[in-house]
Amino acid sequence: MDVIALDWWQLGLAALMVVALAACTTLARLGVGRPLLIAAVRTAVQLTLIGLVLEALFASARFQWVAMMAVAMLLIAGREVMTRQRRRLTGGWSFGIGTLTMFLSSFSVTILTLTVIVGPQPWYTPQYAIPLLGMLLGNTMTGVSLAMDRLTANVWQQRSVIENRLMLGQPWQEAIGDVRREAMRSGMIPTINSMAAAGVVSLPGMMTGQILAGSAPALAVKYQILVMFIITAGTGFGTLAAVAATSRRLFDQRERLRVDRLSPPKG
């Protein structure tokens, strides 16, 4: 079975639905009309460009191009993690911690999956490496940014409680324990929910794509389970590291709470 080709005018029909939604929300003064349209335009432009980049990348399949693409994706994800936080760590620590933890978890899980589990020849074959890394980075980014945002916001809100716990002689890990658990939870909940609902409520995107492209459902399911597991591992380890590093940064050598290391909220 061949994939049915899509024409630009067919995409235009889908775009009309988004425009209609934006018009409705604007009429109802709900304030999401503009961001909705901007995001829709970004999706179209970014995906079109990436389509061109991927075609060039697949044609050359050289390691350095694949690596460069991966680094670019990582840096953009790091920036995204930073902008999604209301109270950032000052001095570039939010970008640093976000990028480093995503690098450690997403890259190691992707490389492990490519070399040990899937095993394309060579292991960096861009048709496998880039989509896998993209899915991992995208999900890890969500987990890391949700967890870091929740952590910094709650530390700010509960700073008196944390300090009172310190006054009673609790080590910093114990004084911030509740906040840390809460942050870890909010980072992991989207992943846990999507695993729980997979196949029952939602048909995951990658599996749907493979089936549309003509794969046998049984193989598509296997790939989807693989992807779900590595996404969970990548998001989980990334979030774990980000929560640990961020909470450590909020205390100094003398275990004092340093809310002065958080910037005032933007906007």
């Binding site: 300090e163 009172n164 310190l166 006054m167 009673l168 002689g169 609790q170 080590p171 910093w172 050598q253 003398r254 275990e255 004092r256």
Partner: peptide, 13 residues
């Protein structure tokens, strides 16, 4: 360490 000191010298706010 910070917490050992504060356990010994305790502040009641």
């Amino acid at each position: 360490s910070g917490h050992a000191w504060r356990r010994a010298v305790m502040l009641v706010p």
